[in-house]
Design a protein around this nucleic acid. Structure first.
Length: 573
RNA sequence: CGGGCCGUAGCUUAGCCUGGUAAAGCGCCUGCUUUGGGAGCAGGAGACCGGAGGUUCGAAUCCUCUCGGCCCGACCA
């Protein structure tokens, strides 16, 4: 392609509304243009990259015998009601909904478990047709609370979503493993540094789940990993061995103490001269379940923090929010800062973190303004709470396998694979005829890749102060042949020749024949980030050109033929 | 949802506090010159200052509402 015919609009300055490098660079390079918050137009160059990403995705999924389909983006409400997810997705505010002329409600698909399950129920009748793995690549719609970072968190974005159908769990394990393999190959081929981590299944539901994280400071997720054992998990899911609590001196009578204006853990440490690990803070949450609302009191060791994702899972609820001051006062009968487990109303759910199990002599609030209690024993002085893992794991703590300390990194979630089991097929009564002759619900898995996000993640991981350094497999062009002065016939001629030669070799090259001065030309190309270049300039009269590698900045004067050889070698062709 | 900041030309911004009829750089267009690192000269187009009300003789500027955008927080017992 001749760049003189490609719509290229580069900006010299960073856009005012971009924060992270990849967002700035994609906008400056004219790759993306925002049309509304979280909604973008992909320019011609961006689309080339996206097509390359999707081509890789297709190749690797097809290699695992997945079949591409295309489902509607607009879904009838009734389908989502049948899976039981309409309520939660609407409550979370994540779903775009709309009505037709008759007032029938629809949504713009944020994900497609419902549609695919309905399809599978129609299309798959017998175990003889299984296993089946179906995927599509299309736009998804999610009304994100806070769209940001360009394509990183958009409200409309390109996603590959796949769904596997098996006769049983063992079959699912096989399908899941196949997708795990495919994902690794996909992200490797896209040139990404990534790590797969254990993950919470979230609103999708189901049992096992793994996320593929592109390691980057700008990532919105925190991951914890252990170099020694390879354990790695999203912080939402991560477990760890916390620092030991101080020795428990044994049963002692409840001791109510006046603690005026002592409200926080820090203040309590100072007031009592006790370590935070000897205390139990009691945090109140307002809880939304599918069918009701209520309050939960969560006891956590004073030096540890509550993981709200784990809490939502433990409560089997839709959402939790920290209780308002009014609620706290109403439930505890005390001002904020004095909440405790003692004498809480019966309708308040009482949970405690596992680190508190078996502990005696805790320091807690008294549910009375100005007082805390020493030597609180759960089960004696208050109801016995249900003990669950509710704690945020932290870097520095021991890996749950005990192999070594956890380290922390930031990641961009580009892929996620789930074992769904029969959750959707049961809810939606999607069955096949099993060998036994009985209708049996499909055992499902679901798998997603954020295609547009992956492309941006690649930029986040591959750029320098001059611009983007695309990994070759997903670069808009693999190589640019630059004609420095389009008025010099010998330069034009040689550049055309090299351009044709590269294309004949199957190399995705472009010809920069734009009538620009050299400065802007070079700056543009560095910003746009094509991996290799052959610059045809002054040396053209002697058949000499410059071979350039974007990533390293390396530039070499070589004979024209050698430049083509160098590009071939670099691309492994 | 809360909290904060911001909407002025295609982009980045100044002007706003202290009202007087909009400015600069980049980009864009024309011509000349220049052609290996965002050139030079000359000329030019381009903004009812996000929108609606209000105050005022007069509003980009002050007030109210509204729409849009960005950031922070979703953790305190």
């Amino acid at each position: 392609m001749r760049l003189s015919q490609v719509l290229i609009t580069t900006l010299r300055e960073d856009p005012a509304d971009a924060e992270i490098p990849s967002h700035k660079l994609l906008v400056r390079g004219g790759y993306i243009v925002k049309i509304a918050s979280g909604i973008y137009t992909y320019g011609p160059l961006m689309w080339r990259t996206l097509k390359k990403v999707t081509a890789i995705v297709r190749e690797e999924l097809d290699r695992e015998s997945a079949q591409e389909v295309m489902m509607p983006m607009m879904h009838p409400k009734e389908l989502w009601v049948s899976s039981g997810r309409w309520e939660r997705y609407v409550a979370d505010g994540i779903m775009f909904t709309l009505k037709d002329q008759k007032g029938t409600e629809y949504c713009l698909g944020p994900t497609h478990e419902e549609v695919i399950t309905a399809y599978a129920d129609q299309a798959i009748n017998s175990y003889k047709q299984l296993p089946v793995n179906l995927y599509q690549i299309q736009d998804k719609f999610r009304d994100e609370i806070r769209p940001r970072y360009g394509l990183m968190r958009g409200r409309e974005f390109i996603m590959m979503d796949a769904y596997s159908f098996d006769v049983d769990e063992a079959g699912l394990d096989v399908s899941y493993a196949a997708m795990d393999r495919a994902y690794r190959r996909i992200f490797e081929r896209c040139g990404l540094q990534f790590r797969s981590v254990q993950a919470d299944a979230g609103a999708i539901g189901g049992s096992g789940s793994e996320e593929f994280m592109v390691l980057a400071e700008a990532g919105e997720d925190t991951i914890l990993y252990c170099e020694e054992s390879g354990y790695a998990a999203n912080v939402e899911k991560a477990d760890s061995v916390p620092a030991a609590a101080p020795a428990d001196p044994g049963s002692a009578p409840l001791d109510r103490r006046e603690t005026p204006d002592v409200r926080t853990v820090e203040q309590l440490e100072a007031f009592f001269g006790m370590p935070a690990a000897a205390m139990a803070k009691t945090v109140l949450y307002e809880v939304t379940w599918t069918d009701r609302e209520g309050v939960a009191a969560v006891m956590m060791r004073g030096d540890l923090d509550i993981n709200e994702v784990k809490l939502v899972n433990a409560l089997d609820c839709l959402a939790v929010t920290l209780a308002s001051d009014e609620t706290i006062q109403k439930v505890t009968g005390a001002e904020v800062g004095f909440a405790g487990p003692i004498g809480l109303p019966e309708d308040v759910v009482l949970l405690a973190d596992k680190t508190l199990e078996g502990r005696q002599n805790l320091l807690t609030g008294c549910n009375e303004t100005g007082y805390h209690c020493l030597n609180v024993q759960m089960g004696r002085d208050c109801r016995m709470p249900e003990f669950r893992d509710l704690r945020v794991a932290k870097a520095g703590e021991m890996s749950p396998d005990g192999a070594g300390p956890l380290r922390q990194a930031r990641g961009i979630e580009v892929g996620h694979i789930f074992k769904l089991g029969t959750k959707y097929s049961t809810n939606m009564d999607a069955t096949f005829m099993a060998e036994s002759g009985k209708p049996t619900p499909f055992v499902m898995g679901c798998y997603g890749i954020g295609v547009s996000r992956t492309a941006q993640a690649a930029v986040e991981q591959n750029h320098d102060e001059r611009g983007i350094c695309w990994p070759a497999p997903i670069a808009p062009f693999e190589c640019a042949v630059v004609c420095v002065d389009v008025k010099k016939p010998e330069q034009v001629e040689l550049a055309e020749k090299l351009y044709a030669e590269l294309r004949d070799l199957g190399i995705d090259a472009c010809l920069d024949d734009r009538p620009l001065r050299p400065g802007p030309k070079f700056k543009d190309l560095e910003l746009l980030g094509f991996p290799f270049s052959i610059t045809v300039g002054r040396g053209a009269v002697d058949g000499m050109v410059e071979y350039g590698v974007r990533r390293t900045g390396e530039k070499t004067d070589v004979a024209a033929a050698d430049a083509v050889t160098a590009v071939r070698a670099a691309l492994g062709r």
